[in-house]
Write a protein that binds this DNA or RNA. Structure first.
Lengths: 147, 147
DNA sequence: TATTGTTATACTCTATAACTATA
DNA sequence: TATAGTTATAGAGTATAACAATA
């Protein structure tokens, strides 16, 4: 049926990503978030003084596109931008209290989706899958210290 | 940095998929193809009498969107649609000779990207990664016999 | 000159509803 | 009534270039 395609890591990865993504997007929509916004909230929550450039690198989105995401998150009051006093070109971002609450609900929904989708894997299979994906990603983007 | 996100299969999968996808898309662009079109060509090549509904299911795209892809592939002469004589509602698709040649070049480019990206994995790690991704996908979409 | 962020724009991908022709 | 395909349209994600402010 699709033997040649199913030999490719790239194809399988995209299939799983598309399927999980659609499922996750629906859950996020219920709490008023898009997938990209979820990743931004999570990352900002864990990194108090991250700037936009760094954020864009880690999350793999063009700075111009990240900017639009931040505009929206800021306009609904889940996040604020403020100038770096040391280097006034850059801006830091941080979550508001409401942003932190929103992020928490989103994280719960994310873990739910995660468990639904990986239900067929044993605990060790699941962690092996994560390990291999990270290895591919880490090796392929050596300049970026993503950990 | 991104500890919580990196525990999620979904997030890692998307990161790898995005990164590989961008790399692959550039290669495809050089030979005048988009990613989605590659998958369609590959699948049609392997399945002589597949109809559009089935194709859409396997490839995880809405029939309406697949239709646009097929329109383009047909307009450039890589693929033809023809009515199923048994059930005139459905149409089969098949590759032209030029489509088969195009598909072959695309496949070579795909395998190149694949090897570049998974260079850090051993042969057994690579096949384990494919196995786990397929297991997730297969279990999550039980109705669809994707093999 | 180089970097950070911003604006503008276009393309790809995804999702949904309404329609047609056949069954 | 139901199904395969089609048309139209909107939203989300991605990519690129040009610009302002700052270094």
């Amino acid at each position: 049926m699709q033997d040649r395609l199913l030999e490719l890591v790239g194809y399988n990865c995209r299939q799983v990503s598309t399927f999980m993504g659609a499922k996750f997007a629906k859950k996020m929509a219920k709490i008023g978030l898009r997938r990209m916004e979820f990743a931004v909230l999570m990352l900002v929550r864990e990194n108090e003084q991250i700037n936009q450039k760094r954020l864009a690198e880690v999350i793999q989105v063009a700075p111009s596109n990240l900017n639009l995401v931040l505009d929206r998150l800021e306009s609904v009051g889940w996040l604020v931008r403020y100038r770096n006093p040391i280097d006034k070109r850059s801006q830091f971002v941080k979550l508001t209290l409401r942003g932190i609450r929103k992020c928490r609900s989103a994280e719960i929904a994310a873990i739910e989706t995660e468990n639904e989708i990986t239900a067929s894997l044993s605990a060790s299979e699941r962690s092996e899958l994560v390990r291999l994906l990270r290895k591919v990603h880490l090796e392929a983007r050596p300049r970026l210290e993503i950990n």
